[in-house]
């Protein structure tokens, strides 16, 4: 069975004892060769979802595939690399032994393991520490070894649960470089992390999971498409600015959006005007009109929402404006929002 998707999930649900609904019908697609990031607040069900993919947890309901095989198909896991969150590798093993051990567990031949262990230690910057026991490692070092063991079987799909947890800035940069390299090699990378700024630099697509449901999913550019705008700030008092903006379009009611003749939305707030477009060519005539009206432009900036903005929007209740409570639900059932 082959599929263009490395991961394809439909209607995945997990209810723990005590009727805790960790996942309530997750639909998700991860294309082959992309870096996919799963975001969500604490207790949203991210780790549960990853564990279901890795057969650590049995789903209550699940349709879908991993690398073209049904979820839970054990032999497929030989082609998957996994770094669990809060992993604990035996302290009596050296870093090299940990990598070798999990390689053997994946069925990697001995000669290949030996060769690849050295390469991976080099890759994660642990060559000098490979012969030392894990118990002597710092948290960041253990994380580096964890990342290396996830790659020992030359996986087509790599699932990394908080790969930069405990890693210093230099290490994070290295891990980002590794992720980029994995992507360049055509591997699919599925990352579960809280470090939004880190993810933004490497991921192609994201899914935001909130209370067991996918709140939004897609490429960052697509998800931020409607939220990009140009911000024009005039060097004028608010009253003067309002009259200058009136040359472009009638002013909307306070707190509301107006529409330009060209169709873009706009908002006015003091001497600032936000115009909902991503196209600089649409801005040029507006700037000309403003300058013709005698306005002095102090600032012109193209604003693109960050991943954090998307995340915060997803975890905010639109009706109350309050951040949604973290954790799974004990009352909500599958599919209900």
């Amino acid at each position: 069975m082959s599929s263009q998707h490395a991961i394809e999930l439909h209607n995945v649900a997990k209810t723990y004892r005590g009727k805790v609904h960790a996942l309530r019908g997750v639909d998700m697609r991860v294309a082959r060769g992309e870096v996919f990031c799963l975001l969500g607040p604490n207790g949203a069900g991210k780790s549960t979802l990853v564990k279901i993919l890795m057969t650590v947890i049995r789903p209550s309901r699940c349709e879908g595939s991993v690398l073209g095989q049904r979820v839970g198909h054990k032999p497929t896991l030989a082609r998957v690399g996994y770094l669990p969150e809060h992993h604990q590798f035996p302290g009596y093993l050296t870093g090299a032994q940990v990598i070798d051990h999990f390689g053997a567990m994946c069925g990697v031949p001995r000669a290949a393991r030996k060769k690849r262990t050295g390469e991976l230690l080099e890759l994660v910057g642990m060559s000098d520490w490979g012969a030392k026991r894990m118990r002597a490692y710092s948290k960041g070092m253990r994380q580096r070894i964890g990342n290396a063991q996830a790659l020992i079987n030359d996986p087509e799909l790599v699932l990394l649960d908080e790969p930069t947890d405990g890693v210093d800035p230099v290490g994070r940069r290295d891990i980002r470089a590794i992720l980029t390299r994995l992507k360049d090699e055509g591997r699919t990378v599925f990352i579960n992390s809280h470090l939004l700024s880190e993810l933004e630099m490497v991921c192609d697509r994201v899914a935001i999971l909130v209370q067991g449901l996918v709140r939004s999913q897609g490429a960052i550019t697509d998800l931020t498409q409607d939220r990009r705008y140009y911000n024009i700030v005039l060097d004028a008092q608010p009253e003067q600015a309002t009259s200058a903006f009136a040359a472009l379009a009638p002013a909307p009611a306070p707190g509301e959006r107006g529409a330009l003749d060209s169709g873009e939305w706009f908002e006015v707030e003091g001497p600032a005007m936000r115009i909902g477009t991503d196209d600089p060519n649409r801005i040029k005539p507006l700037l000309s009109s403003l300058m013709a009206a005698g306005a002095t432009i102090r600032e012109l900036r193209h604003v693109r929402p960050s991943l954090e903005d998307l995340f915060m929007e997803a975890v905010t209740d639109p009706t109350t404006g309050q951040t949604l409570a973290p954790g799974a639900s004990k009352t909500r059932k599958g599919g209900a929002k």
Binding site: K51, M54, T55, V56, K74, P75, T76, L77, A78, V80, Y82, P84, H86, H87, Q88, F89, P90, F102, M105, C106, G107, Q149
Partner: peptide
């Protein structure tokens, strides 16, 4: 916790 996840994620 932390040890079993890695073992169960292997093809065994």
């Amino acid at each position: 916790a932390g040890a079993i996840e890695t073992m169960l994620s292997k093809p065994i």
